[in-house]
Write a protein that binds this DNA or RNA. Sequence first.
DNA 1: TGTAATATTTACCAGACGGTAAAAAATTGC
DNA 2: GCAATTTTTTACCGTCTGGTAAATATTACA
Lengths: 210, 210
Amino acid sequence: MSNPRSAKTKKRTRIQQENEVKILNGALEVFSQHGFRGSTVDQIAEISGMSKPNLLYYFNSKEAMIRALLDQLLDKWLDPLRKIDPHGEPLFEIQSYVRRKLEMSRDFPRESRLFANEILQGAPRVQDELRDLKELVDEKAEVINSWIKNGKLAKCDPYHLIFSIWATTQHYADFDVQVKTVLGPGHSGPGRFEDAARFLDQLYVDGLKP
Amino acid sequence: MSNPRSAKTKKRTRIQQENEVKILNGALEVFSQHGFRGSTVDQIAEISGMSKPNLLYYFNSKEAMIRALLDQLLDKWLDPLRKIDPHGEPLFEIQSYVRRKLEMSRDFPRESRLFANEILQGAPRVQDELRDLKELVDEKAEVINSWIKNGKLAKCDPYHLIFSIWATTQHYADFDVQVKTVLGPGHSGPGRFEDAARFLDQLYVDGLKP
DNA sequence: TGTAATATTTACCAGACGGTAAAAAATTGC
DNA sequence: GCAATTTTTTACCGTCTGGTAAATATTACA
């Protein structure tokens, strides 16, 4: 068999597991920085510390690498949304969701950028997963609507609420360079995530009215 | 002279002007969809309706094309921020700014994606312009701080406020596919921008507290 | 209308890149 | 320790792509 991943091999060697991790980590590093077309297999090979043919022994193609990455990513990416508790205190649930998404941007910026790249180019590889996403969002939108109906939340469009949370939180990972440049050396340290959290907490609860 | 743009030619032929426009329009279309490395000069040539060598007669290189695009873009991109009036009514000024940015996403999604691509990959071509951006943001942050001091606006971090406006508004252009998929055929028409405007108006003024 | 300048086409190249074949080396399981 | 399997290396190939040279066609202008 030419490739250990091609069949549903139940047994995976120790070396296989290690190398697959090394490769996917390298691929994530490179893809998230240069995009798919902007990345070369040689780059990934070098950053992973192995030769190109060796790398292609584990993943049949460059395409196979990004697919593996996107597959394992999307599940993780939806987790914060799944955790919204329909029986929790609405405003607290939303703040918690914002926090979780902000932590994702802080702790997994490469994953965020990989995803952003994919969506920016029209999501050619994750259209099916996007439909799963829609179902989950529909479900949570219903929850939010019920909160509104119960007078626990101001009347608003739950979809655009969710979009705004995605946008504001992912911004810190995807537009990191811009954020750092604008904040300058003084305020662009790790503390910027707490500043962001504080601002968003206030925005989503009270808005800007004095 | 091999290239009409290379020198500071005062006189630009009718044909030059027309073709430069055609090329830049094609380049924007292609770059914004596939990113710089993901685009080929042949693609741009085809979409512009001319041959590759002919195209390279007007722009010396692929690099020259994206630079021309980014140059003419950045000025336009900052315009909405410049228009914030320090002597206006604070909440109204912010709402207006959100509107203007939202209109940019609606009317110039390709430009938004081009910019997003550039920043995502670490802004290799617009670092200088990013510093100009910082100065403008610093200036407007001061304005916002003065509004807060005068009790016209809730206390908040003006930088993160601006970030959140950028994020929420550009999201509709940059993540268009995702937005459309999640909203479904029913709500993803042009009217989604008005829905977004309504939501953001409310969010920025009153928040979500019932 | 003639001619200098501009614009377009044809044919091409060198390098980068994704991927492969096959042999050599290392590892595993008995 | 040895055979079977897995892993790694060496050498290579076809294609795509950015870009060029030079010849041809077109335009502008006196």
